[in-house]
Each structure stands twice: as structure tokens, then as C-alpha cells.
Design a protein around this nucleic acid. Structure first.
Lengths: 215, 215
DNA sequence: ATGATTGGATAGTTGCACTCTCCAAAGCGG
DNA sequence: CCGCTTTGGAGAGTGCAACTATCCAATCAT
């Protein structure tokens, strides 16, 4: 199919598709002549994934590129690809280690993870600290600075909850054929986030209604 | 204290504080003379909340203003203030109701919420549909379009998980004095989101490592 | 043959979140 | 009292991200 048809079938404007091609978010089409290229179903699929990551997952274009590059990287195995993709996701401002509040938050996070038996550092050697861990530290620091300190004990039920959901997440991923699993894992990681946050806000509304009925 | 001191104590540049004052995110200081104003601890506290919402919670400035306005609105009761504040939070693109996939997603969401016994529509009368519900519908639609359909049954464990966490959330809020609870609820809703997402990504990493150890 | 279409390159637009510059009034040290 | 600095407000300017519009030569459809 031509770029115009790709545009029509995806609902993404031709100009935007050209932009994504330039930025390397989509691989170039198969060149037919000097001025024309042909796109296939795989391009359509990838374009839809890009739009989903950007619009629903709020992933910046540059990070989306990294995520997609990791997905396609034939050099890496299953878990490296997934790891690289997830680490490319946005994770907010880095913690400021000069700040004593950050140091305390880091201790809280370490205590929590140790208690849970999670290894938050990458595989072997001098692996960098995982972005999700940094994200956690930043959030705990910010809460503490605002006067809402949370201890490892406060966080444990949240961690246990996420631990249970991770089992469901991986079960869901295993429904798919092995060669589809990495993409499925990324899509489910990112696109279940709004599902989770939406359900959480609804659940809070329910619980608040239950407790403070007539106020 | 003067604006300069507010800046120093919060770590926010004076120019940015002026910008927030202009945008109405911070109430004006108490005017001392025609060209000087005095700020107090309450301003400092609010400024820190603004920064936390914007930087860690990824809330746009304009939404942060709505959230803060709702928090301060003396006209409203406890739950209206909290509801208005949470509804002002970003919730992604609205679902496209012309699309049949959206209609199907909406049925899935309705089925789930009915099964759970949650009331996703506001209080009385012709209340608008809750933004978190719309957020959920958009996410389910996007997943379906990408070839990752999820049924009400798939979503139930996630909803149950969030239901349990909402209880903990509200317990945490009730630690604070009644007049502090609305702000605490907003801060915890928004700032626990990175905590939750960070823990989820870490938990997925753990679970993936457990299942696919040597790949 | 000829008018429309295609894909690539370049430049322009929009929105957001600041950031800079200016300025008159105020404070302050001698 | 007099320079010198500081203050807060207003408006314009900046940088970045994500598009969007314009051009253009090659090509395709009739």
C-alpha cells in the first residue's frame, strides 16, 4: 500500500507519517521507484503501536523510538529486549542525591525491596540503577518533602498488590506466540497503565463514597 | 518572607514563582507597600505542592490550577472538592464514540463496573461521565485495536487489586486532620501514581526473571 | 501529453513552560 | 538626603516537542 492508504487505514495524517519515518519510528517502505515506496501490514501495525504509545501511553517521540528500536533488535534475547524497552519509558526527573531527603527515601526503597526479596539492580557487574527504582525514589522523596512521609511498611501493600498483578500481566503475555511476546509485554506494560490508574481513581471514588456517604 | 526567600527555600526560581502567581497557581502575597509583598509558610507549602504535581505528577500547569482552585473552594464540601480536583487531573484523549471498537470497549467497561458494583457516574441527575471511566474506555479501545483485546474477566483482577489499594489509600488519608484530608487525598492520588507504576515495572521484572530465568 | 499524485526535504506553526528584560517604587548605608 | 541595590509586576522572548505546510522533481493514470 502507498503512504496515502497507510494514512487512511490508520487515521494518522500523511504529514505525521512522514515525520515518523524521518524520526525513525517507522522503518522506510520498500522502494518501488525513485519516488515511490510500498508499505505493508507490518507497517500499519507498527504505526498503530507508535500512536498508542504516544497518545495513550504519553511516551515522548524520542523514547518511543528507543522502545521500538529495542523491540526490533535481533541481537538481543527475549529479556534484554524487554528490559531495554521498559527502561526507555519515561520515568520522570532523576532524584537529587545531594538532598538528604532523597538519601532517606533511598533507604526506605532499599528496605522495601530487600524485604520483598526483589533485586532492583540489573543483571551482572556494575549495572546502572533501574529507572523504575529511581522513579520510586523520586516519588517517595517528593511525598516526604510535602509532609506525607511513607515508610517501607506503608508501601508494602502497594508492592504486594503490584506483585500479584505482575503475575496476571505475565500470564496475559504468555497467551501469545513467543515471537509476539516482547511486543505484547511492552504494549501491556504501557497501555495497562491508564487502565490501572483509571480503575484506581474509580476505586478511590467508591471507597470515599462508602466512608463519607453524606458529605 | 519576600519572593526571593520563597524562591530560595523552595528551590524554585523567582521568575518561575512570578509566572505561577500570574497564572493563579499561587495566591498573591500580602501587600506591604505598592511594590512589595510578603509570603508565609502556607505559600511555601502550596508552592511545593504545585511543583510536585507538575514535575512528579506530570500535571499540566492549567490543570494544576484547576486542582488547586478546587482544593481551596470553601463553597464545596469534602467530597465535592476531592471529586472536582481528581476530575481536573489529565486523563488522556477522549474516546471516539463514532468508532465501533470504542462502543465495544464501553460495553466491556460497563460490564466490569456493574459486576464490581461500582457506580461510575457522578452523584445525581444527568451527571457527566467520570474522566477516569473515559480514560479506562480509551485504554481498552487502544488495546483492542492493537490486537490485545481484554475482557471484563481479564480486567477484574486489576480492578480487585485497585479496590484493595483504595482501602489503604483512604486509611492513609484518615491519618490526617479533617481540614488537611482533601489536600492529602489529592497529593496521595497523584504522587502514589509514580510509586505504583515504578513498583509495577519492578514487579514485572522480577516475575519475568523468575519465569524466563536464563534467556 | 498532461494533470494529479507520490515521497522526500525544508521550513513554519502551535502550545507549553518557563525565562529575560525592563521599570518604577522601596529599602538601606553613609 | 543621596546614591545604590532590591523588589515585584508586566510583557516579550526562548527552547523544546510534536506536528503541519509548502515545494519539488519523478512518476502514474488517462
Amino acid at each position: 500500500m502507498r503512504l496515502a492508504e497507510l494514512s487512511e487505514r490508520s487515521g494518522v495524517s500523511a504529514a505525521t507519517i512522514k515525520y515518523y519515518l524521518r524520526e525513525g519510528l517507522l522503518p522506510p517502505g520498500r522502494r518501488i521507484t525513485a519516488t515511490q515506496a510500498e508499505y505493508d501490514e507490518e507497517h500499519l501495525r507498527r504505526l498503530r503501536l507508535v500512536r498508542a504509545l504516544i497518545q495513550v501511553g504519553r511516551v515522548p517521540v524520542s523514547s518511543a523510538k528507543e522502545v521500538l528500536t529495542a523491540l526490533r533488535d535481533e541481537e538481543l534475547g527475549w529479556s534484554e529486549r524487554l528490559g531495554t524497552a521498559v527502561w526507555s519509558l519515561p520515568h520522570g526527573p532523576a532524584p537529587d542525591d545531594a538532598d538528604p531527603v532523597t538519601a532517606s527515601a533511598r533507604r526506605t526503597a532499599d528496605e522495601l525491596l530487600e524485604h520483598l526479596g526483589w533485586s532492583h539492580r540489573g543483571g551482572d557487574g556494575v549495572a546502572p540503577v533501574a529507572p523504575p527504582y529511581e522513579m520510586l525514589v523520586t516519588a517517595i522523596t517528593t511525598l516526604a518533602r510535602l509532609g506525607y512521609p511513607c515508610s517501607a511498611a506503608d508501601l508494602e501493600p502497594y508492592a504486594r498488590g503490584m506483585e500479584r498483578l505482575a503475575v496476571d500481566d505475565l500470564d496475559l503475555v504468555e497467551r501469545y506466540a513467543p515471537e509476539e511476546q516482547v511486543e505484547a509485554a511492552v504494549a501491556l506494560t504501557v497501555l495497562y497503565e491508564p487502565v490501572l490508574l483509571g480503575l484506581r481513581r474509580l476505586a478511590q471514588g467508591e471507597e470515599a463514597r462508602r466512608r463519607f456517604a453524606g458529605q
